[in-house]
Amino acid sequence: MANTEKKVLSRKTLNRSFHHWFYGHLTAFSQEHMQTFGYLTSMLPIVEELYDNKEDQEKAMKTYTAFFNTEPQLGTIIVGITASLEEARANQVNSGSDGDVDDTTINGLRAGLMGPIAGIGDSLVVGTLIPVILGIALGMSDGGSPLGAIFYIIVWNLLGYFGMRFAYFKGYELGDKAVGILIGAQGKAVRKAIATVGGMVVGGVAATWVTVKTSFRLTNSSGKAYLVLQDKLDSVYPGLLTAAFIVACWWLMAKKNISPIKVMLILVVVALIGVLLGFFNPGLTY
């Protein structure tokens, strides 16, 4: 029964598996099983190629019914890693040897990587890459030009597709060796470096695109303003009021655990009081 021929996944199957993940990782999302079905559909071509009989296929697919959720773009690397592990397991089964890859190792690795990858992915993809491309695009679309939107569509999709493709095949190539790189000392150093870029870019985005201004001024009897609060604040630190509002929102969410929707409602109240006191005035006319 033992088959000594070593099985290697074909490029075609790996491509299919990657595209199933690229498209379907979130389509059947629910709060209970977030990306599990996306994972199942991307492992199916691999399992079908590696195992000839139905029983082995069913046994292998059962592994991937465990809960899965991570940052989907960078998380592609985990799918690549498991493709390589599944290949190793199939060769164990066929040669009849007791190898060290089983359900527990694969799922342990998936569960162990989900969290760290989500952390790196959120700050790298959603926190830095997308705001930077969007920031450039927003400048190009200032004044109602479609150029910025088109720029964003092209640049993000090229980076997204080829970045995810690279992550998948890198994961497949490295197999479980990738784990050490991702969550070891080097991974931690990379994460810290990315967070620094992210922090500075977000600061730049805030200063460039967010403006909170007060209209508060004191005038003397002849109607001449002798105190324009906005100018005074800006002479202390340009954008002081904007920065103060951002830090206040952060404090409410991070330190007081108030949800973003509630913070928005608080801002409505702040705006109403500010308008009534003459602190805010958008200066509108028909």
Binding site: G199, W250, V270, V275, L284
Partner: peptide
Amino acid sequence: MKTLFTVGALLPCVGIAILLKQIV
């Protein structure tokens, strides 16, 4: 209307703060 417009100017602060929550 004045309030609605002022809220519009304040709202981006929330977006930035959500991101800061991830980094800080």
